[in-house]
Amino acid sequence: MKFLASFYGSSIGKKWVVALTGLMLVGYVVGHLVGNLQIFAGPEQINQYAAMLHSMPKALWVIRAVLIAGLFLHVFTTLKLAAENKAAKARQNERRASTAPKPAKKTMVLSGLVLLSFIVYHLLHFTVRSTDPRFHSLPRGEHDVHTMVILGFQNPLVSGFYLLSVFLLCMHLSHGLQSVLQTLGINSKSLRDTLNKGGQTVSWILFAGYASIPVAVLLNKLTVVAP
């Protein structure tokens, strides 16, 4: 306990908490995409996958609880760090210039907070299903994820907010992935460029994967299949 308190009390300790929870959330983002992309394999495939997840409710709730706790720690610790950083630079010079500018770096807190609001909406939309009455009477029953997702994304507003959010997510990760490694002490002169480019490549592959689903729905490439 004493160790945790003094670790979390230090600047580097807090950064490690943000990095480790960030890494866990990236793991979820990858896993979630693997699940989502099964929609292209037809209703049986993805609905079976959803039923499989729901067939082990205990494991599902443990994973959900760990993810929510991780997300809470990630956001709470970042906001604490950001407040400390603001205080450490209370007064700014009149003329400021950046020698290493990158929009992703400057907007980590902002992109994170927009994502947080997206996560709340996304859970209400597809998990709790409180925003769309059609999701309560799906043709193949409760686990008809295929129909639900396509009906959901046919609304351009829903798809638009989703695309914006996954774009922000991947922008967040394009700085976040190499930032996580740097904070965990995994960086060196010879690795640096590879880690940097690797992080960005992974981020934009994730974006392409996530964006492909609403885009396919809007272009009518993915349509509701009658049972």
Binding site: G9, S10, S11, K14, K15, L81, E84, N85, A87, A88, K89, S98, T99, A100, K105, K106, M108, H175, Q178, S179, Q182, T183
Partner: peptide
């Protein structure tokens, strides 16, 4: 930390 410096957030400036 005690001297009141901020936390590194990997801006690399």
């Amino acid at each position: 930390d005690a001297e009141g410096f901020g936390n590194c957030s990997n801006h690399y400036e």
